[in-house]
Design a protein around this nucleic acid. Structure first.
Length: 494
RNA sequence: GGCGCCAUCGUUCAGCGGAUAGGACAACGGGUUUUCAUCCCGUAAACCGGGGUUCGAUUCCCCGUGGCGCUACCA
């Protein structure tokens, strides 16, 4: 076992993030990982990843999601100090590889009378609960096997059994939570929790306590849904005679309707946000602020800022609401802060996905075009609909736009007037400045307000009424394509 | 039902006994502009209710109400 005590006498912080492979990681899981990681970084401690795969019910066990756990964290720039791939001093880091430890621990507890074998069948337990519910009584095991005599036990010894914790019948269990303060519960309200299942595998309660202790975890930072079962864990530590870690229960994440975050709230799967083109720094920033606050009026924080400011005191006691709209805004902020070349690089896969990029030339076009639309991008995914008109010979024409700016005969005349001026510019001189000068002089000659020329031109070239500045658009498009499209539209007018 | 946690603008995060209760998102209004977006300026908007404690409560305590969580041989 590693020693959490440093030579200078201070405690080395060791925190853990223990995902369970029962489904794709969601926002809440990752938020908990971030909180743990920030705390480790802040304290110069260690961030440990541990796989809690003790639930082998085929309907829940999903080994296929295991690789994503690591890759999702890495996407955010989180690299565990110890995990099941790189190992570490207190491995293995996969609970299914630690089974003997839990069995030994359970045995120890039975020896000392802190736990007992229970031979009750699942059927009896179910019937018991049903009756309790019907009568409006609190549900829970009736402790029948806790008081078995030796002869009775001998008779049952060949039967399958679970191991249950012998919760004290009286008194109360008190513990201190770093965000909620002192919490106490009456022991008589606690059930004799199953520690070891009849298949010999541990439940969360046992495995988590045994591992946190043997891995020298100093702070248990987890979601508030664990608050009610913490007394059972405290009792377990006491039964083993071990010192408890510090308890830190972070608030739950709810949807904007204040209900627990679920599929109903749209996407809650973390990887979905990666796919949709959210930047790691935006996700890190936003998720860190979900249930934690630096206590000041600022929203945008770099990872370094977050680490600098992180403290357990900043974890809020009330639920955190997941506001997808605010995430969207924040992502837009980070896109605009990024260098154009980075956004171009990140955008190319989305453009390929949308079948807009097919050739080397298309990539060059993308390099010119993407920087023109970063101001209106909130996610990388939006790059395709924002730039699609640049690609291919002709854009798709929006009927309303055409109706408004290309229908009157004046518009055709206008375009015809501008065309030769553009043709007069050399292909390698087709720059924003020269294009603007050419178009402006055409406008002057026509003697009409500039919008009456600019709008038809834009619709003719892009098929729509909104987009980047017209001259930038034309320069990026290139002389050849501009003339091709203009001529095509003029020909159609006649 | 039992046990536990929580409670500030429409939403969210601050505020940890004495302030004109602050920031952000969204909304609305205005400016810039060839459109949209960006950017800039501005407006509106909150302490769940009732008791205490205190010279003084948004802040501390109790009750109520409401929300959420747990109540599995799931984590």
């Amino acid at each position: 076992m590693v020693q959490p005590i440093e030579r200078d006498g201070s405690m080395t912080v060791r925190v853990r993030y223990p995902p369970s492979p029962t489904g794709a990681q969601h926002i809440g899981n990752v938020r908990t990982a971030i909180l743990n990681w920030l705390f480790a970084k802040k304290m110069g401690g260690r961030f440990i990843l541990r796989l809690e795969d003790t639930d082998r019910d085929p309907s829940r066990y999903r080994p296929d999601v295991i690789p994503d756990i690591l890759s999702n964290l890495r996407f955010l720039g989180i690299e565990p100090d110890e995990d099941w791939e790189k190992g570490g001093p207190v491995g293995p880091y996969i609970q299914s590889e630690r089974l003997p430890l839990y069995q030994k621990a359970a045995e120890e507890l039975i020896e000392s009378g802190k736990a007992y074998r229970c031979y009750c069948t699942p059927e009896r337990i179910a019937a018991l609960r049903a009756g309790q519910q019907q009568r409006g009584e609190p549900t829970g095991y009736d402790r029948r096997c806790r008081y078995l005599t030796s002869p009775e036990m001998d008779k049952l010894s060949a039967q399958p059994f679970v191991v249950r914790l012998a919760v004290p019948l009286e008194g109360q269990t008190l513990y201190h939570d770093e965000v909620h303060g002192d919490i106490s519960v009456e022991n008589n309200a606690l059930d004799d929790q199953v520690l070891l299942k009849s298949n010999g595998w541990p439940t969360y309660h046992l495995a988590n306590v045994v591992d946190d202790h043997s891995m020298s975890i100093t702070h248990v930072i987890r979601g508030e849904d664990w608050l009610p079962s913490t007394p059972k864990h405290v009792l377990l530590y006491q039964a083993f005679g071990w010192e408890t870690p510090k308890w830190v229960h972070a608030p739950l994440i709810l949807g904007t309707d204040h209900k627990k975050l679920s599929k109903r709230h749209g996407d809650t799967e973390f990887a979905e946000y990666i796919r949709r083109g959210y930047l790691p720094e935006a996700l890190m920033n936003f998720l860190a602020l979900l249930g934690w606050s630096p206590g000041e009026d600022q929203e945008l924080y770099s990872v370094g800022d977050l680490i600098d400011r992180f403290s357990l005191e900043g974890i809020t006691p009330h639920p955190a609401i997941f506001d997808a709209n605010k995430l969207l805004w924040m992502n837009g902020e980070y896109i605009r802060k990024s260098s154009p070349t980075r956004i171009v690089d990140l955008s190319i896969p989305y453009l390929q996905e949308a079948s807009l990029i097919k050739t080397e030339e298309d990539i060059e076009l993308a390099e010119r075009v993407v920087p023109l639309v970063t101001d209106r991008m909130k996610t990388l995914e939006e790059v395709a609909p924002l730039t699609d008109f640049f690609f291919g010979d002709m854009p798709k024409y929006d009927s309303k736009a055409v109706e408004k700016w290309l229908k009157s005969s004046d518009d055709g005349v206008t375009l015809a007037k501008i065309l030769p001026r553009l043709e007069g510019i050399a292909a390698d001189q087709f720059t924003v400045n020269l294009i603007e000068a050419a178009v402006r002089s055409g406008i002057e000659e026509l003697g009409v307000p500039s919008p009456q020329v600019i709008h038809p031109l834009r619709v003719a070239l892009t098929g729509r009424t909104v987009g980047p500045g017209l001259f930038e658009t034309m320069a990026a498009m290139g002389k050849e394509k501009v003339l091709y499209r203009l001529k095509a539209i003029i020909a159609k007018e006649h």
